[in-house]
Protein backbone atom coordinates (compact mmCIF):
# COMPACT_ATOMS: atom_id res chain seq x y z
CA UNK A 1 0.00 0.00 0.00
CA UNK A 2 2.68 2.28 1.16
CA UNK A 3 4.26 3.66 -1.96
CA UNK A 4 4.81 2.05 -5.30
CA UNK A 5 8.41 1.17 -4.71
CA UNK A 6 7.39 -1.67 -2.45
CA UNK A 7 5.16 -3.05 -5.21
CA UNK A 8 8.06 -2.83 -7.64
CA UNK A 9 10.33 -4.48 -5.09
CA UNK A 10 7.89 -7.30 -4.53
CA UNK A 11 7.44 -7.75 -8.28
CA UNK A 12 11.19 -8.05 -8.77
CA UNK A 13 11.44 -10.87 -6.25
CA UNK A 14 9.48 -13.28 -8.45
CA UNK A 15 11.50 -15.81 -10.45
CA UNK A 16 9.89 -14.59 -13.66
CA UNK A 17 11.03 -11.03 -13.11
CA UNK A 18 14.54 -12.16 -12.20
CA UNK A 19 14.88 -14.05 -15.48
CA UNK A 20 13.61 -10.92 -17.23
CA UNK A 21 16.13 -8.75 -15.44
CA UNK A 22 18.98 -11.09 -16.35
CA UNK A 23 17.98 -10.99 -20.02
CA UNK A 24 17.66 -7.21 -19.92
CA UNK A 25 21.05 -6.83 -18.26
CA UNK A 26 22.75 -8.90 -20.96
CA UNK A 27 21.10 -6.86 -23.71
CA UNK A 28 21.72 -3.68 -21.73
CA UNK A 29 25.41 -4.50 -21.53
CA UNK A 30 25.61 -4.99 -25.28
CA UNK A 31 23.69 -1.76 -25.88
CA UNK A 32 25.74 0.41 -23.54
CA UNK A 33 29.23 -0.96 -23.89
CA UNK A 34 29.08 -2.70 -27.26
CA UNK A 35 30.32 0.39 -29.02
CA UNK A 36 33.65 0.17 -27.19
CA UNK A 37 34.13 -3.52 -27.84
CA UNK A 38 33.59 -3.79 -31.57
CA UNK A 39 36.50 -5.16 -33.57
CA UNK A 40 35.75 -3.18 -36.78
CA UNK A 41 33.96 -0.03 -37.76
CA UNK A 42 30.35 -1.08 -38.16
CA UNK A 43 29.71 0.67 -41.45
CA UNK A 44 32.76 -0.21 -43.50
CA UNK A 45 33.18 -3.16 -45.76
CA UNK A 46 35.89 -5.38 -44.34
CA UNK A 47 35.52 -8.73 -46.08
CA UNK A 48 33.66 -10.90 -48.54
CA UNK A 49 29.85 -10.67 -48.43
CA UNK A 50 28.10 -13.32 -46.34
CA UNK A 51 31.28 -14.97 -45.19
CA UNK A 52 30.98 -17.76 -42.64
CA UNK A 53 32.17 -17.12 -39.10
CA UNK A 54 35.90 -17.59 -38.59
CA UNK A 55 38.70 -16.25 -36.42
CA UNK A 56 38.60 -12.71 -37.77
CA UNK A 57 34.81 -12.42 -38.17
CA UNK A 58 33.30 -14.19 -35.16
CA UNK A 59 29.77 -13.96 -36.56
CA UNK A 60 30.69 -13.75 -40.21
CA UNK A 61 29.98 -10.83 -42.53
CA UNK A 62 26.76 -9.39 -43.86
CA UNK A 63 25.41 -9.07 -47.36
CA UNK A 64 27.75 -6.16 -48.10
CA UNK A 65 30.79 -7.66 -46.40
CA UNK A 66 30.60 -5.73 -43.09
CA UNK A 67 31.43 -7.42 -39.80
CA UNK A 68 28.19 -8.74 -38.23
CA UNK A 69 29.54 -8.71 -34.67
CA UNK A 70 30.55 -5.06 -34.92
CA UNK A 71 27.23 -4.06 -36.34
CA UNK A 72 25.49 -6.06 -33.64
CA UNK A 73 27.48 -4.38 -30.87
CA UNK A 74 26.79 -0.94 -32.30
CA UNK A 75 23.18 -1.45 -33.37
CA UNK A 76 21.27 -1.36 -30.08
CA UNK A 77 21.92 2.07 -28.70
CA UNK A 78 19.88 4.13 -31.15
CA UNK A 79 17.02 1.66 -30.99
CA UNK A 80 17.06 1.82 -27.20
CA UNK A 81 17.02 5.55 -26.76
CA UNK A 82 14.39 5.89 -29.45
CA UNK A 83 12.20 3.35 -27.67
CA UNK A 84 12.64 5.05 -24.31
CA UNK A 85 11.85 8.45 -25.79
CA UNK A 86 8.82 7.13 -27.68
CA UNK A 87 7.39 5.26 -24.71
CA UNK A 88 8.08 8.14 -22.34
CA UNK A 89 6.46 10.67 -24.63
CA UNK A 90 3.49 8.41 -25.33
CA UNK A 91 2.85 7.70 -21.66
CA UNK A 92 3.29 11.35 -20.68
CA UNK A 93 0.93 12.69 -23.35
CA UNK A 94 -1.56 9.87 -22.87
CA UNK A 95 -1.56 10.40 -19.13
CA UNK A 96 -2.15 14.12 -19.57
CA UNK A 97 -5.06 13.61 -21.95
CA UNK A 98 -6.58 10.65 -20.08
CA UNK A 99 -6.54 12.30 -16.66
CA UNK A 100 -7.83 15.61 -17.98
CA UNK A 101 -10.68 13.87 -19.81
CA UNK A 102 -11.63 11.81 -16.75
CA UNK A 103 -11.43 14.78 -14.41
CA UNK A 104 -13.20 17.40 -16.48
CA UNK A 105 -15.82 15.07 -17.93
CA UNK A 106 -18.61 16.39 -20.14
CA UNK A 107 -17.68 18.24 -23.32
CA UNK A 108 -13.93 18.31 -22.63
CA UNK A 109 -13.98 14.55 -22.20
CA UNK A 110 -16.00 14.04 -25.38
CA UNK A 111 -13.78 16.27 -27.54
CA UNK A 112 -10.52 14.84 -26.23
CA UNK A 113 -11.60 11.25 -26.60
CA UNK A 114 -13.01 11.77 -30.11
CA UNK A 115 -9.70 13.34 -31.07
CA UNK A 116 -7.99 10.25 -29.68
CA UNK A 117 -10.39 8.12 -31.74
CA UNK A 118 -9.20 9.85 -34.88
CA UNK A 119 -5.57 9.21 -34.02
CA UNK A 120 -6.40 5.68 -33.05
CA UNK A 121 -7.81 4.86 -36.44
CA UNK A 122 -4.33 5.06 -37.87
CA UNK A 123 -2.50 1.85 -37.06
CA UNK A 124 0.70 3.14 -35.52
CA UNK A 125 3.07 1.90 -38.24
CA UNK A 126 0.87 3.52 -40.88
CA UNK A 127 0.73 6.70 -38.82
CA UNK A 128 4.49 6.93 -38.68
CA UNK A 129 4.91 6.03 -42.37
CA UNK A 130 2.45 8.75 -43.33
CA UNK A 131 4.46 11.48 -41.64
CA UNK A 132 7.85 10.06 -42.53
CA UNK A 133 6.88 10.02 -46.20
CA UNK A 134 6.11 13.73 -46.00
CA UNK A 135 8.70 15.02 -43.57
CA UNK A 136 11.62 12.78 -44.41
CA UNK A 137 13.21 10.31 -42.07
CA UNK A 138 14.98 11.21 -38.86
CA UNK A 139 15.46 9.20 -35.71
CA UNK A 140 14.08 11.97 -33.50
CA UNK A 141 11.02 12.44 -35.68
CA UNK A 142 10.36 8.70 -35.77
CA UNK A 143 10.45 8.34 -31.99
CA UNK A 144 8.24 11.39 -31.50
CA UNK A 145 5.77 9.96 -34.02
CA UNK A 146 5.72 6.58 -32.31
CA UNK A 147 5.14 8.39 -29.02
CA UNK A 148 2.21 10.31 -30.50
CA UNK A 149 0.86 7.09 -31.98
CA UNK A 150 0.92 5.56 -28.49
CA UNK A 151 -0.90 8.52 -26.95
CA UNK A 152 -4.51 7.50 -27.74
CA UNK A 153 -4.06 3.98 -26.38
CA UNK A 154 -2.44 5.18 -23.18
CA UNK A 155 -5.03 7.91 -22.73
CA UNK A 156 -7.87 5.42 -22.99
CA UNK A 157 -6.34 3.12 -20.41
CA UNK A 158 -5.59 5.94 -18.01
CA UNK A 159 -8.94 7.59 -18.47
CA UNK A 160 -10.53 4.26 -17.62
CA UNK A 161 -8.33 3.89 -14.56
CA UNK A 162 -8.92 7.48 -13.46
CA UNK A 163 -12.72 7.46 -13.77
CA UNK A 164 -13.35 5.46 -10.58
CA UNK A 165 -10.73 7.54 -8.77
CA UNK A 166 -12.36 10.79 -9.92
CA UNK A 167 -15.73 9.45 -8.76
CA UNK A 168 -14.30 8.31 -5.44
CA UNK A 169 -15.34 10.03 -2.27
CA UNK A 170 -11.95 11.49 -1.46
CA UNK A 171 -11.75 13.29 -4.79
CA UNK A 172 -15.35 14.48 -4.39
CA UNK A 173 -14.38 15.81 -0.98
CA UNK A 174 -11.45 17.71 -2.47
CA UNK A 175 -13.72 19.21 -5.13
CA UNK A 176 -16.46 20.10 -2.68
CA UNK A 177 -13.88 21.94 -0.63
CA UNK A 178 -12.69 23.87 -3.63
CA UNK A 179 -9.12 22.58 -3.81
CA UNK A 180 -7.44 23.83 -7.00
CA UNK A 181 -7.94 21.39 -9.92
CA UNK A 182 -4.23 21.06 -10.57
CA UNK A 183 -3.65 20.06 -6.95
CA UNK A 184 -6.55 17.57 -7.06
CA UNK A 185 -5.22 16.00 -10.25
CA UNK A 186 -1.61 15.77 -9.13
CA UNK A 187 -2.07 14.89 -5.48
CA UNK A 188 -5.33 12.95 -5.39
CA UNK A 189 -6.02 11.46 -8.84
CA UNK A 190 -2.51 10.72 -10.11
CA UNK A 191 -1.42 8.68 -7.07
CA UNK A 192 -4.56 6.61 -7.54
CA UNK A 193 -3.53 5.53 -11.03
CA UNK A 194 0.18 4.87 -10.47
CA UNK A 195 -0.31 1.13 -10.73
CA UNK A 196 -1.87 1.12 -14.21
CA UNK A 197 0.63 3.82 -15.10
CA UNK A 198 3.54 1.57 -14.18
CA UNK A 199 2.10 -1.36 -16.06
CA UNK A 200 1.38 0.80 -19.07
CA UNK A 201 4.88 2.26 -19.09
CA UNK A 202 6.42 -1.19 -19.01
CA UNK A 203 4.26 -2.54 -21.83
CA UNK A 204 4.75 0.58 -23.95
CA UNK A 205 8.52 0.28 -23.63
CA UNK A 206 8.34 -3.26 -24.94
CA UNK A 207 6.00 -2.24 -27.73
CA UNK A 208 8.13 0.77 -28.62
CA UNK A 209 11.08 -1.54 -29.17
CA UNK A 210 8.90 -3.69 -31.41
CA UNK A 211 7.53 -0.72 -33.35
CA UNK A 212 10.86 1.01 -33.89
CA UNK A 213 12.62 -2.21 -34.81
CA UNK A 214 9.83 -2.89 -37.29
CA UNK A 215 10.18 0.57 -38.81
CA UNK A 216 13.92 0.11 -39.16
CA UNK A 217 13.29 -3.26 -40.72
CA UNK A 218 10.98 -1.67 -43.28
CA UNK A 219 13.68 0.91 -43.90
CA UNK A 220 12.02 3.92 -42.30
CA UNK A 221 13.78 4.08 -38.97
CA UNK A 222 17.50 4.38 -38.65
CA UNK A 223 18.98 5.15 -42.01
CA UNK A 224 21.69 2.99 -43.55
CA UNK A 225 24.61 2.64 -43.44
CA UNK A 226 24.31 3.05 -39.68
CA UNK A 227 24.03 -0.21 -37.76
CA UNK A 228 20.70 -1.20 -36.27
CA UNK A 229 19.23 -4.58 -35.34
CA UNK A 230 15.98 -4.12 -37.21
CA UNK A 231 17.77 -2.72 -40.23
CA UNK A 232 20.23 -5.61 -40.21
CA UNK A 233 17.37 -8.10 -40.50
CA UNK A 234 15.93 -6.23 -43.46
CA UNK A 235 19.29 -5.85 -45.21
CA UNK A 236 20.29 -9.45 -44.88
CA UNK A 237 16.94 -11.12 -45.45
CA UNK A 238 17.81 -12.03 -49.01
CA UNK A 239 20.93 -13.85 -47.85
CA UNK A 240 19.10 -15.83 -45.23
CA UNK A 241 19.35 -19.16 -47.00
CA UNK A 242 23.09 -18.76 -47.50
CA UNK A 243 24.11 -17.16 -44.22
CA UNK A 244 21.51 -17.17 -41.43
CA UNK A 245 23.67 -15.45 -38.80
CA UNK A 246 23.39 -11.84 -40.04
CA UNK A 247 19.60 -12.19 -39.62
CA UNK A 248 19.39 -14.50 -36.63
CA UNK A 249 21.94 -12.68 -34.47
CA UNK A 250 20.06 -9.34 -34.31
CA UNK A 251 16.78 -11.24 -34.02
CA UNK A 252 18.12 -13.04 -30.96
CA UNK A 253 18.93 -9.74 -29.29
CA UNK A 254 15.55 -8.24 -30.14
CA UNK A 255 13.94 -11.39 -28.81
CA UNK A 256 15.89 -11.20 -25.55
CA UNK A 257 15.01 -7.56 -25.14
CA UNK A 258 11.32 -8.15 -25.80
CA UNK A 259 11.13 -11.24 -23.62
CA UNK A 260 13.06 -9.64 -20.77
CA UNK A 261 11.02 -6.47 -20.84
CA UNK A 262 7.80 -8.40 -21.06
CA UNK A 263 8.65 -10.71 -18.17
CA UNK A 264 9.39 -7.74 -15.95
CA UNK A 265 6.34 -5.77 -17.08
CA UNK A 266 4.04 -8.74 -16.60
CA UNK A 267 5.26 -9.57 -13.14
CA UNK A 268 4.78 -5.93 -12.15
CA UNK A 269 1.28 -6.07 -13.60
CA UNK A 270 0.53 -9.26 -11.72
CA UNK A 271 1.88 -7.97 -8.42
CA UNK A 272 -0.06 -4.75 -8.85
CA UNK A 273 -3.19 -6.73 -9.65
CA UNK A 274 -2.82 -8.79 -6.52
CA UNK A 275 -2.17 -5.80 -4.31
CA UNK A 276 -5.10 -3.86 -5.75
CA UNK A 277 -7.34 -6.89 -5.49
CA UNK A 278 -6.70 -7.09 -1.77
CA UNK A 279 -7.93 -3.60 -1.13
Amino acid sequence: MNGNLSVLGRAMRTGQARLGLVLLSVVGFVVLFGHFLMPYAPDTIVGQPLADPDGSFLLGTDILGRDVLSRLLDGGLTLSWMAVLAAGLGVFLGCLVGLTAAYRGGAVDAVLMRAMDVLLSFPEIIFVLLFVSMLGRSTLLTSVLVGIAFMPGVSRVLRGAALPVVASEYVLWARANGLPPRQVLLREVLPGVTSPLMVETGMRLVWAVAAIASLSYLGFGIAPPAADWGLMVGENQDGLSVAPLPVLAPITLILMMALGGNLVAESVARTVGRTEGKR
Binding site: M1, G3, S168, E169, Y170, L172, W173, A176, N177, G178, E188, P191, G192, T194, R279
Partner: peptide, 24 residues
Protein backbone atom coordinates in the same frame (compact mmCIF):
# COMPACT_ATOMS: atom_id res chain seq x y z
CA UNK B 1 -19.78 28.98 -3.43
CA UNK B 2 -17.07 30.89 -1.65
CA UNK B 3 -14.30 29.34 0.35
CA UNK B 4 -15.95 30.33 3.63
CA UNK B 5 -19.17 28.46 2.79
CA UNK B 6 -17.22 25.47 1.52
CA UNK B 7 -15.36 25.32 4.80
CA UNK B 8 -18.43 25.61 6.98
CA UNK B 9 -20.61 23.06 5.19
CA UNK B 10 -18.81 19.74 5.38
CA UNK B 11 -19.85 16.45 3.82
CA UNK B 12 -19.31 12.92 5.13
CA UNK B 13 -19.71 10.04 2.73
CA UNK B 14 -21.50 6.75 2.90
CA UNK B 15 -18.56 4.60 1.91
CA UNK B 16 -15.80 4.77 4.52
CA UNK B 17 -13.52 2.77 2.24
CA UNK B 18 -13.49 5.46 -0.44
CA UNK B 19 -13.59 8.63 1.58
CA UNK B 20 -9.88 8.77 2.36
CA UNK B 21 -7.04 8.78 -0.14
CA UNK B 22 -5.58 5.27 0.22
CA UNK B 23 -2.09 6.49 -0.64
CA UNK B 24 -1.90 9.07 2.11
Amino acid sequence: RGKEVQRQVQYIFQNPYGSLNPRR
